[in-house]
């Protein structure tokens, strides 16, 4: 029996990076906030580089609570979409190749989001990771942890529920 040769690592990496880029870069609001994603295998870390326009209270100064909420929501949505895309990609469903332009994957819709503000957001870069705790056919529950200088000191956490996109094939 002849075993199929594994795909070259560059090809796999390129495909995964392209898929992630297509998912993130298509959303104007993510660009406005300046959020980008670091990928290690299937694990994503959202990065929000500090910018003056993200400040809420200029006296402290601190990140705007709305920015923190938006950062949590963007992370939850991208990680959830990514988890769905990853499965399709790894199972050989190559619709990823058609994502450029009009044929983007359908993004889940937020039903609700609860944000817990644990510390005030410092005027520094912020990071977040999301865990998909339940992903059903119609609904998903996602938890997000946000931190800044120190991974063990979260500045915010959030839980959200999402309506899954209709599967088309």
């Amino acid at each position: 029996m002849i075993r199929k040769a594994p795909e070259p690592v560059q090809v796999v990496r390129q495909r995964r990076d392209d898929a992630l880029r297509a998912l993130v870069d298509s959303v104007p609001y993510i660009r406005f906030l300046g959020i980008h994603f670091d990928r290690r295998g299937d694990e994503l870390t959202a990065i929000l580089p500090f910018d003056q326009k993200l400040i809420g209270n200029p006296i402290l100064p601190a990140l705007h609570g709305g920015v923190t909420a938006a950062f949590m929501e963007v992370t939850a949505l991208i990680v959830l979409s990514w988890t769905l895309s990853w499965e399709r990609m790894e199972n050989g469903v190559r619709d990823v190749d058609h994502w450029q332009g009009k044929h983007l994957p359908k993004i889940p819709k937020t039903i609700d989001l609860t944000v817990d503000y644990l510390r005030s957001g410092l005027p520094r870069d912020a990071y977040a990771r999301a865990t998909v705790n339940r992903s059903g056919r119609r609904y998903a529950s996602v938890h997000v942890e946000g931190w800044q200088d120190n991974r063990d000191r979260m500045f915010a956490q959030a839980t959200g529920h999402f309506l899954m996109p209709e599967q088309d094939g």
Partner: peptide, 20 residues
Amino acid sequence: IGDPETGVVHGGAVSALMDT
């Protein structure tokens, strides 16, 4: 915009408005 296909505003912007 949060959904480039429809032009619907991102939930995060709605959150920022309500938090403010």
